[in-house]
Amino acid sequence: MAAMMTSTQPPQPPQPGPIRISLIAGRYLLFSIDSVMEIRRKHGLCCVLTGTMPQNPTQNLFLGLPIELRAEEARLLVERGAAYIADETSDHLAKLKEMSSEAGDKRREAYLRGLKEKRRTAKRLFNEEKAAVKKMHEGKRKGGSKKEKAAPATDSLFESPTSPVVEAAAKKEVLPAITPSTSSALLDKDSISGAIADDELPESSAFYRYLNTRGYFTTPGLRFGGDYSAYPGDPMRYHAHFLANCYSWNDKIPMLDIVTSGRLGTAVKKSFLFGAEREEEEGKKEGDVRMFCVEWAGM
């Protein structure tokens, strides 16, 4: 079992620049799509999509940002130096108070300039895509009938001259609307704003860390009756191989739990994986984890 698990490639080392994890109402959330892609590609974290549309808040099939991290996932990123946890309530209140100062006015102006630049970029990309589609359709029409020459424009008694107000409105730059998914542009880029102290960080899980450092992706395993579902790679490409449960080192595991979990795991084409972190002993370092795998035969 150990040989099989260590053969999987570990996640890539994190890149500099900590990710901001928002602590809101006791939940660890990520709102930035770039941060979501980074933790998935480099740290093997899938997390859970929780966002919904205001127009249809009861839909539960297609969820989006933000994603919610479990406590052990947030702690793992902090321990690796890849992220920090920010208390969004207190931090946003402090930033709103700063907006009434001169420094706040400058920050607001810089934010609006950056937002306008993003709108210009969006308009340019939209126009480029529109031109490419138009060119493609024109190419398809070349093989068909020739276009008729357009009739020359003639003056009409019913045409009214364009007023200066209309001409000015036509020349005015019209930019598409953009709704930023985060308020990071209002924060200081060089400072870790709102970070909570180390003693307030969530509890770590050696069992989860053991799976993650060996390249396994994990998702909540509640629907299979376990703590985690462990995948040998990204869940978009692989099925889960293990139904995993975590115990304490001195826990007495009832035989009925092993039998039922083993049979359930085999029924859904998974092996039942369970283990615990070894207690600190002489010659044994903290974080040493023992795991066992059960696969029911004869089903």
Rank of each mutant, 00 (worst) to 15 (best):
K171L: 04
K171P: 00
L65W: 04
A74W: 06
K97N: 03
E128Q: 00
K130M: 00
L125H: 11
E159I: 12
T162L: 14
S183W: 15
A185I: 11
E138L: 08
A94C: 04
A170V: 15
K171S: 07
A131T: 08
I67W: 06
K130Q: 03
A83I: 05
R70V: 09
E129H: 01
T179L: 02
E88A: 05
A83D: 05
K123N: 08
I178F: 07
E117A: 10
K140P: 05
Y84L: 05
E173N: 00
E72I: 04
P176R: 07
M136R: 07
A169D: 14
P176C: 06
F158D: 15
E73C: 11
P164D: 12
K123I: 01
A169R: 15
T182M: 03
S101K: 15
S101D: 09
S156H: 04
V133T: 09
A71G: 10
L63T: 11
L175W: 02
V165K: 15
E102H: 15
R75H: 12
E117F: 02
K97M: 02
L157H: 10
E117H: 10
K149R: 11
A153T: 09
P180M: 00
D155L: 01
K146F: 05
G143C: 11
L186M: 06
D91N: 11
H137L: 12
L61Y: 12
S145E: 13
S183P: 09
I85N: 07
